[in-house]
Amino acid sequence: MQVDFYHLTQVPLERALPQIAQKILESGGRLLIVANDETRRGQIDQLLWTYSADSFLPHGQAGGEDDSRQPVLIAGSPDAANGARHIALVDGVWRDEALDFDRAFHFFDEERIREARAAWKGLAEREGIERRYWKQNDAGRWEQAA
């Protein structure tokens, strides 16, 4: 199981998340995006429709009849009604339920760095977990730092 920590310092979530979601879909995977706040989930919903002028990411918000058919599902909890094996935690809150997936993406900013460090340390002792820490360089590109 792989957990990728993405420290958002220069590029906002609104640019980073669609790129990762697109790569997952291109590989034939499915993604569950989790945020506690309903307003934030609505913002992500709009983002995935409009992030690119010539494209969109097919998705839906959890609670609909077609949840199981959605390649990307936006939800308030880590319940993958769409059968996703990838999870993106986009509100800076680590959830141990993410360990039930094949790969987790934990996005956090400076406001949540303390919690992210605690999650990083907490996962160090757990068997079968590969942790990766990604930071942004001065050009805004992602570099693996740990």
Rank of each mutant, 00 (worst) to 15 (best):
W120R: 07
H59C: 09
L57E: 07
D79S: 09
Q19E: 15
G92C: 09
E110K: 12
Q46R: 14
A116S: 14
L89K: 00
L25T: 11
E125K: 06
V72G: 01
E65S: 14
G64P: 03
R114M: 08
H106Q: 09
L99C: 03
E65T: 11
A81D: 07
L48F: 14
G64V: 08
Y51N: 11
A16E: 13
E125R: 03
L99V: 05
D54C: 03
N36S: 15
S68V: 08
A88G: 03
E111P: 00
D102K: 06
R114N: 11
E26M: 13
I74P: 02
D91I: 06
R85L: 14
P78C: 02
A62P: 01
G60F: 00
G83V: 06
F101Q: 01
A53F: 04
Q19I: 11
Q43I: 04
S52F: 03
I74V: 10
D109L: 04
L17D: 05
S68D: 08
V72W: 01
D45N: 15
Q46I: 05
L17I: 12
L32Q: 07
Q43S: 08
A53Q: 13
K121R: 14
E127I: 02
F56C: 11
I74T: 04
G122P: 05
R30Y: 10
R117V: 07
E110T: 13
A119E: 10
A104G: 07
R30H: 10
A104K: 02
N36F: 04
F105D: 01
R30K: 15
D100N: 13
G28F: 12
P58E: 14
A80R: 01
V93Q: 15
